[in-house]
Structure formats: structure tokens, C-alpha cells
């Protein structure tokens, strides 16, 4: 971290930015999905994630205490200030890559939110209560689709296996623990990501086996993480270029 900021603020940005960037990516599918029913389902997922974004970033703004709204935080920060993991900013790729990314994130998100329901911070507990229900449904949906595609045709199997090979290392970043996580865990606010890893592994590996997929050996070799902003892919800048365009071109307007 370049400057020392409130760990709770940092932790809330991580939650909000993951939801924002993934919601943005999923929303790119609207009007382009493989089948109408899936188009509608993906939009629901994106809507849930954007709803969660508002709640996390609004609270982040309050914790920060500088009068920034959720919109200010979403639309007026540059890439180095974003705290999302690299997994969620990767391009959609084919539908297989999108749904695999979704599944790997969904299970983490649900476990994380479930644990946060008993957070010592009541506001976080309240948000988690609502968001955990949404995440549980996301898992149900993305898991079923991953299994269906893995155990479908030869082509669908090959494509979803390719997606897993690309994404598996990135998913490991979700479990990196740093001092922000440690402090939040010690205070009983947000669980240590490491504490979720066994449950995540058991669940995800089970589903991937049912999908007849092979889990690759690869691990996350990067030394910096999106969680503290020391690392991102080049894709994030392009996401922000689109997302923030109007706010940047016409600053300070009501929309």
C-alpha cells in the first residue's frame, strides 16, 4: 500500500470493486448470450452484483469520511486505486470462460458472505445477509452450467476445460491474506480469506470432478495482488475507460 489507509475502508473497497468489475463484465453479455433464457439469467447476476457494489461502496465512502458517494468511488478512481482481484477483470472470452470465472468467484463470494453474516460490524452483517442469498443462487446456477458443459459434448468439454486452465491460477489470488485481512479477521469483521480456502477447494473440486474436468497444477505466481492495487491486468484500464467516460468527459453533472 502506498499510503496507509483505514483497513476497513480497504476491505470494503475489495468487496465493492470485485462486485463492480465482475458486474460490469457480466453486463457486457446483455443482448449477446447463447440463448434468451441465459441472457436474462446473466443480466440478473449482473444486477445482483451491481446492487452489492452500491451497498459496499456507499459504506466504504462513509467509513472513509471524506464525503465520497458510491458513484464517486466507482467512477472517479484510476486503476491503481482499484482493489479487485485480477480474476474479475479478465475479458469474458467465450461463454465457457465467463461461466467458469463466475463459478469460481461465486463459491468464494458465498462462503465469504455467509461468514460475514456474523460480522461484529452490524452494517456489514446486514449487507452480507442480503447478498449471501443472491450469491447462493449464483452458485446454483453457475455450478449447474459448468457441470452441464463439462459433461456435455466433446466441444463443450474442451472449451470449459480450456477456461479452467486459464482461470484456475487467478482464482488462487482470492485466498491471499495480507495485513488488511489479518486485521479485519482479528476484529471479527471479515473472515481471513485463507480460512475459506479448504471449504472452497472441497466444493469446487467436487463440482469440477462431476463436470469431468481436470484441475490444473498451476498456481498464482504473481507477487503483487489486485487486492492492494500493486498489480492489475491491462484490461482494467480499458474497463474504466468505458465505465467512467461520461463522468470524466462531463464532470460534476447530474445524470
Amino acid at each position: 500500500m502506498t499510503q496507509k489507509s483505514d483497513p476497513k475502508f480497504e476491505a470494503l473497497l475489495r468487496l465493492g470493486d470485485n462486485a463492480l468489475i465482475l458486474g460490469h463484465r457480466v453486463s457486457e453479455w446483455c443482448g449477446h448470450a447463447p440463448v434468451l433464457e441465459e441472457d436474462i439469467a446473466l443480466a440478473n447476476t449482473a444486477l445482483d452484483l451491481l446492487g452489492q457494489t452500491s451497498l459496499w461502496l456507499e459504506y466504504a465512502g462513509e467509513v472513509e469520511g471524506k464525503g465520497r458517494s458510491a458513484d464517486d468511488i466507482a467512477f472517479l478512481r484510476d486503476a491503481w486505486d482499484f482493489r479487485n482481484v485480477l480474476l474479475v477483470e479478465l475479458p469474458n472470452g467465450d461463454f465457457g470462460q465467463t461461466i467458469m470465472r463466475q463459478y469460481l468467484f461465486d463459491v468464494f463470494n458465498r462462503l465469504n458472505l455467509e461468514a460475514m453474516k456474523t460480522s461484529t460490524d452490524t452494517r456489514i452483517a446486514e449487507i452480507a445477509e442480503k447478498a449471501a442469498k443472491e450469491a447462493a443462487y449464483h452458485v446454483e446456477r453457475s455450478e449447474g452450467t459448468v457441470i452441464g458443459l463439462g459433461d456435455g459434448t466433446e466441444e463443450s468439454h474442451r472449451r470449459i476445460q480450456d477456461a479452467l486452465n486459464i482461470l484456475w491460477p487467478y482464482a488462487q489470488e482470492l485466498f491471499i491474506t495480507d495485513e488488511v485481512d489479518e486485521e479485519m479477521a482479528k476484529a471479527g469483521v471479515i473472515p481471513d480469506p485463507k480460512s475459506l480456502q479448504d471449504a472452497w477447494n472441497a466444493e469446487v473440486r467436487g463440482a469440477l470432478a462431476e463436470a469431468t474436468l481436470e484441475v490444473p497444477e498451476a498456481h498464482f505466481g504473481h507477487r503483487g495482488s489486485g487486492k492492494d492495487g500493486r498489480m492489475h491486468t491491462e484490461h482494467l484500464g480499458h474497463i474504466l475507460t468505458q465505465m467512467q467516460w461520461l463522468q470524466r468527459a462531463y464532470p460534476g453533472q447530474e445524470w
Partner: peptide, 20 residues
């Protein structure tokens, strides 16, 4: 009505399509 490959997916699709 809607389209789905199987009953389980039909239920999920119904949730997404008809209970928005």
C-alpha cells in the same frame, strides 16, 4: 413458457424469467 435442456434448468430459468 420457456426453453430449457432439463427440468432443473427449467426451474432456474423460470426463476430468472418469470419472477424478476
Amino acid at each position: 413458457s420457456l426453453h430449457a435442456p432439463d427440468a432443473e434448468t427449467a426451474i432456474k430459468n423460470a426463476r430468472d424469467v418469470y419472477t424478476r
